[in-house]
Every structure is written in C-alpha cells, then in structure tokens.
C-alpha cells in the first residue's frame, strides 16, 4: 500500500507511531495538525498560542489543583451529623479500611498523578520558553506521555456524580468550595493538554541545543 502524506514537502522525517508510515515534513504552521494518510493517527500538532498559552494554562491548573485539595470537597448530612471529605480523604478512607493497595491507586490517579503531570508540564514548557536549559527538562518531558493516561480527574468527577445520586436518597449533600475548583481544574487541564504537544517540544529543545 502506498500512502501519501496529507501535508507534503520537507525537512524533518516523521514515522507514524501507529502504522510506521514514513513522512517528510516542512515545519507546521500554528494551529495545524498533521495526520497519517494511512491510519489517521495524529503525527504532529502545532498548538495555537504557542508556549505562552501552555504556560498560562498550566499555571492556572496548578493553582486550581491547590484550591481543589485545600478545602472540603463534599459534605454529607444525616440527622444533624456532618461528615466532610476532601479529595485526599477518598484515599485515606480506603487506607483506614485496610485497602492500602487500592488507596495507592486512587492516590496516584487523583492527587499525585495530576500534581506531577501539571507541575512537570509547567516546568518543561517554562524551560523551553525561557531558553534556559533547566535541569531534568528531558527526563520530565519523557515521563509526561507515560503519566497522562493515569491521571483520571475526569473519571473521578463522574464518580462524584454517581456518589451524589447514590447518597441523595438517604442524606443531604453539600458541595464544597473544592468541588468548584475541581470542575475548573478539569476544564483548564483539558485546554492545557490541547496546547501542549510533547513531540513539538522535543523538536524545539533540539533547535536550542544546536544553536
């Protein structure tokens, strides 16, 4: 089968990571996405707004993450008695009930993973943007794509909705300040990851190194 690239001429070589088709690329224009003509996978993206947008969004995400973890998340009220929880509280509850393994998975997917992903993305984009070749930039950048699927903020939000419905019949539920910050965090981090393409950053790091 012969595959023709959808955006032709030439400077860098790119091989599709899903079907191994080989392409030659001219640098993309901002906002452009190059897809494989063979299997349709995204080969390269040049996010609109450049690195400044990514930095702004990741800084916002980091602040929202702090807010989301600093205040009560949900409050449950049954006959005058209140029970408050934070996001971290979900992991702690599992740990206290003797489910340590489960607590670790929940901790990684809802607290540690997001914190690591957001702060390292911010660090890397900042490092490339400032043309300061800060230490660990390459190591962090190579972790980011592996970490991304384990950050499950959106899935956790669906879990919150289900918990709401399940408890709604027998108790009154109050939404805490953190929940609003959390919803904001999901939206902002989605926008941030759209403004961030690891392969593009690798290319930019490469130019910096050569020049």
């Amino acid at each position: 089968m012969q595959c023709q690239p959808r955006n032709s001429p030439a400077t860098t070589l790119v091989a599709c990571h899903e079907c191994d088709s080989l392409y030659r690329f001219e640098p993309l224009v901002p906002g452009a996405t190059a897809r494989c003509g063979c299997c349709g996978a995204v080969l390269l993206r040049y996010p609109r707004g450049g690195l400044t947008r990514a930095i702004a969004l990741y800084t916002t995400a980091l602040l929202l993450l702090l807010l989301a973890n600093a205040f009560p998340f949900l409050t449950l009220e049954i006959s005058g008695r209140q029970e408050v929880t934070t996001i971290l509280g979900a992991s702690i509850a599992l740990y206290r009930q003797g489910m340590g393994e489960l607590a670790v998975v929940v901790l990684i997917t809802t607290v540690l993973g997001p914190a690591l992903l957001i702060s390292s993305s911010l660090y890397v984009t900042f490092s490339v943007h400032m043309r300061r070749y800060l230490p660990f930039t390459r190591t962090l950048l190579s972790w980011i794509s592996d970490l991304a699927p384990w950050v499950m903020l959106d899935v956790f939000m669906l879990g919150v909705l289900v918990a709401f419905v399940k408890l709604g019949n027998m108790a009154t539920m109050h939404v805490g300040l953190s929940l609003y910050a959390f919803v904001g965090l999901i939206l902002v981090s989605a926008a941030a990851s759209a403004a961030f393409d690891p392969h593009m950053l690798w290319q930019q790091l490469d130019y910096r190194k050569k020049s």
């Binding site: 949900l74 449950l76 029970e83 929880t85 509280g89 979900a90 992991s91 702690i92 509850a93 599992l94 009930q97 489960l102 998975v105 929940v106 997917t109 809802t110 699927p149 384990w150 499950m152 899935v155 956790f156 669906l158 879990g159 919150v160 289900v162 918990a163 399940k166 408890l167 108790a171």
Partner: peptide, 17 residues
C-alpha cells in the same frame, strides 16, 4: 481508564459515610 469510576465511587462513599 473510565472503568475506574466504580472504584472512585466506593472510595468517596467510604470517606463520606
């Protein structure tokens, strides 16, 4: 990853109730 939703529900219920 969306299959994790049930586990999060259990964790939240355990924390609240």
């Amino acid at each position: 990853r969306w299959s994790m939703v049930d586990i999060f529900v259990v964790a939240l219920l355990a924390a609240l109730v």
